[in-house]
Design a protein around this nucleic acid. Structure first.
Lengths: 152, 152
DNA sequence: GTACGTGCAAAATGTTTGCATCATT
DNA sequence: AATGATGCAAACATTTTGCACGTAC
């Protein structure tokens, strides 16, 4: 299969071993828009890989994040309100998130809005900031915290 | 004392009872620039309030956040790397944070940079987004993830 | 006096670790 | 063959909860 090869080369390019578990977890993460938690992914993937361990999901997600193939979303909100577990996203292109302050649900801001907003941030100011603070910026994370209408 | 009254009225304005614990925790949070965790605050405050319970710190922080007197910072990074516990900030005026992807340490972006960057975000685009997504934005959280030079 | 906050300990999560085994390189 | 990943269970850390008591309104 074509896709398998693509993923395989993505992995090996970054020094990750290509295992069935990693492949399945990455595919599931890539296929969903839902910003799943590690546990969500475990439940999505384990039907196909009987015997999968939750610890492997955690290990894999850490490896993917380190390799730049996934992002761990900064999680606000108390544990009660959805802030209790980390959420992941395989979309590496920079985009914004909406986070509901009641439920912790995370949604993507549509691409056109995301780029419109991100373009407004001046790279020269960021570079000036990097220089002044002695800090190398890897990622600009923007989260719009608020509430969806029609309270549940 | 003047300050006590100020805090008292801050609290009562928002329907919070004014207890010694809440006062001490709020003062400690307001006085520091260090974005402490609940446990940090517990250790800062408990010398003055013997018998203070960590659960009270958590309760108080939740009450302060709900009342808009404090913010829980979105916490990226794995549990190992400082993402394991929530950090709080009494500065309600919107500002940006730097987060070290190695250590989880959070630092404020200086006010002049913060406002320069925040001003670049067009309110009209945000309003359009709110309308399209059916979402009421309460807060724009921006985090610059990266690393400080001179690794520790 | 009533409603709410506090302290304590126990429970509930979420995440990591140690180790034996297994798969990928 | 060697290195690193997996699975399992136990350890760990963080946060929440239940309940008796105390305190602010």
């Amino acid at each position: 299969m074509e896709k398998t090869k693509q993923i395989r080369s993505l992995f090996t390019q970054r020094g990750l071993r290509f295992t069935q578990q990693r492949r399945a977890i990455y595919e599931a993460l890539e296929a969903t828009k839902s910003h799943p938690t590690a546990d969500d992914l475990f439940h999505m993937v384990s039907p196909r890989l009987q015997g999968l361990s939750l610890a492997t999901v955690y290990n894999t997600l850490e490896a993917l994040c380190d390799a730049g193939l996934a992002l761990r979303l900064p999680s606000g909100g108390s544990a009660k309100r959805g802030g209790g577990s980390a959420r992941y996203d395989a979309t590496v292109e920079n985009h914004l998130h909406l986070r509901c302050s009641r439920t912790g649900v995370v949604a993507d801001v549509p691409k056109d809005f995301s780029s419109k907003l991100l373009e407004q941030i001046s790279p020269s100011v960021l570079r000036e900031l990097e220089h002044q603070m002695g800090f190398k910026i890897q990622l600009v994370q923007i989260e719009l915290v608020g509430q969806f209408h029609k309270a549940s």
